[in-house]
Design a protein around this nucleic acid. Structure first.
Lengths: 188, 188
DNA sequence: AGTACTATGACGTAGCGTAATCGTAA
DNA sequence: GTTACGATTACGCTACGTCATAGTAC
């Protein structure tokens, strides 16, 4: 076991990060080098690199550095906290995705208002969809199940999808309300 | 025409904003009150309020304040710049959405590694969908046309739709790339 | 006279990037 | 001796939120 030790620049390049990122991680205590050289250079060991790998994994999931600091490299007993943090981030992501999709909707509407009647687009409309699904044997219950799933999974996308069928806003609202209404999903 | 004029707090409440937001907009020059009272209070006129309404519309689309400052309330001749900003934001949104979905993938994989084989969900899967559509007479060209339209019209909804079929992320990406690839849509 | 407003200013947020000015290694 | 690294410090970014302190309206 030779004492492999890396300087900041090397470690940064190895992980595709910038030097200042590692300096920052050092400052906030997320990743401190195990030791310093005689000239006060940071020396990162293989263990440091392993920890950094973990950090990068979580960071690529968008977990805030403060949370990563708590869950990375801790004792192996705290798997629950890791899962909790990940699930929390997952919920947050759903919220962010919905907000961004709402922004998409706003932009599309604004652009439509400025360039009216410009698009002559193909695409299936509601009648075609329904015809397709009915011909394929999907009944009312099946369609309601699909709308419920879509609405539960991602209300914003459901909205966009319905609009893509060129339904009037009232109809869109009606369908979404219908999909949200409680009631037992049809038994198979 | 009575000289209607609002103070910061009133204007803020009227638009569902916070007072400090308006103070900030004043500081950066985005929305300056037309005048001040004798006691140096900000006095917002109806025109100011109209400008704020525009600002809010663009902000709800996620347009950065610096861009809003350039395009809001300008002479009506610069409709092109408005459209350009909105389209740029639209592209940015697609990028952000993709990043967030990638983060979702990472989290799902991390969680799966920790708690394997736990979920069992209902809903139509890809095979069922394809069977449905084929039985209804939709051929390969028709399906590609549909994916292309869906992708062009609303990438977010397309993504969510594909995910609702429980496709693995790679497959989702493959299909979306395929839908984005140029090429003549099949002639009818 | 009390309280609900208003003013300005400074500082904080997340996650680094970008100098500026040094010392060190090969 | 050059230049490619290293060190530290400080300031910048977005779009505000949060005090702190002081004046004003009702």
């Amino acid at each position: 076991m030779t004492a492999v030790s890396l300087t900041v620049g090397r470690l940064a390049r190895r992980f595709g990060l910038s030097r200042s990122t590692l300096l920052y991680y050092d400052r906030i205590g997320l990743l401190r080098p195990s030791s310093r050289s005689a000239a006060n250079y940071r020396r990162y060991t293989a263990e440091d690199a392993a920890r950094l790998a973990q950090v990068c994994r979580f960071r690529s999931a968008g977990v805030p550095l403060a949370d990563i600091a708590r869950i990375a490299g801790g004792r192996p007993g705290d798997g629950d906290e890791v899962a909790a943090v990940l699930e929390r981030r997952l919920e947050e992501l759903n919220g962010e995705l919905e907000r961004l999709r709402a922004q998409q909707d706003v932009i599309v509407r604004l652009l439509k208002r400025r360039a009216p009647g410009r698009g002559r687009r193909r695409g299936l409309d509601k009648a075609q969809w329904v015809a397709l699904l009915r011909a394929a044997g999907l009944d009312d219950d099946g369609m309601r199940t699909w709308h419920r799933e879509f609405e539960r999974l991602s209300p914003g996308a459901h909205q966009v999808f319905l609009e893509s069928l060129r339904l009037p806003p009232r109809e869109v609202r009606r369908i979404r309300a219908w999909a949200r209404r409680p009631g037992p999903p049809p038994a198979p």
